[in-house]
């Protein structure tokens, strides 16, 4: 009885051994496509993905918001709400971000702009690199619901 139970337990715990660190940078946009006034633009992150047994070369992984803050400076904000993981939407008419689940709101730069906002931290920024005309981002996930920004690995 111990042998099959142990084998089952080990297999069941397999996800704990999986590691998502070491995510590579991916090109997400052309620098020119970002408005110079710093208005966030939503872009889809397309990259290779391994999901269980499936290996897909190019598949949309998620979305981020890119803001051009200077001529060759770009800030990337994660679209996943740091509160509970819903998709934060940018509302152009209010010039702010809004999460439709628990009404978290964020300013255009991703900071919390309302003390009532339930999110424990500002929107998560991602590592960005501008290489020539292209914007590259390291697309990772962060744990939600806590004050510290901790990468999910």
């Amino acid at each position: 009885m111990i042998v099959p139970a142990a084998a089952g337990l080990v297999a069941w715990l397999d996800p704990l051994a999986r590691d998502a660190s070491g995510t590579a940078m991916v090109r997400v946009a052309a620098l020119e496509a970002l408005p110079p006034d710093g208005t966030p633009r939503r872009v889809t992150v397309v990259a290779g993905k391994r999901d269980g047994w499936t290996r897909e070369p190019d598949v949309p992984l998620g979305a981020i918001y890119l803001r051009r803050t200077a001529k060759d400076k770009v800030v990337a904000l994660h679209s996943v709400c740091p509160h509970a993981g819903c998709f934060v939407d940018y509302q152009a008419e209010r010039k702010s971000f809004f999460c439709p689940c628990h009404d978290s709101t964020f300013a255009m730069d991703g900071s919390i702009n309302d003390p009532k906002s339930p999110s424990p931290r500002p929107m998560d920024t991602l590592q960005v690199e501008v290489k020539g005309d292209d914007v590259w981002v390291r697309f990772v996930q962060y744990r939600t619901g806590i004050k510290e920004k901790v990468e999910v690995t």
Binding site: V45, P60, L61, A63, F87, V88, D89, P100, C101
Partner: peptide
């Protein structure tokens, strides 16, 4: 399901 699109009716 599509993680690249907002779903505001969540």
């Amino acid at each position: 399901a599509d993680p690249t699109q907002p779903f505001n009716a969540a």
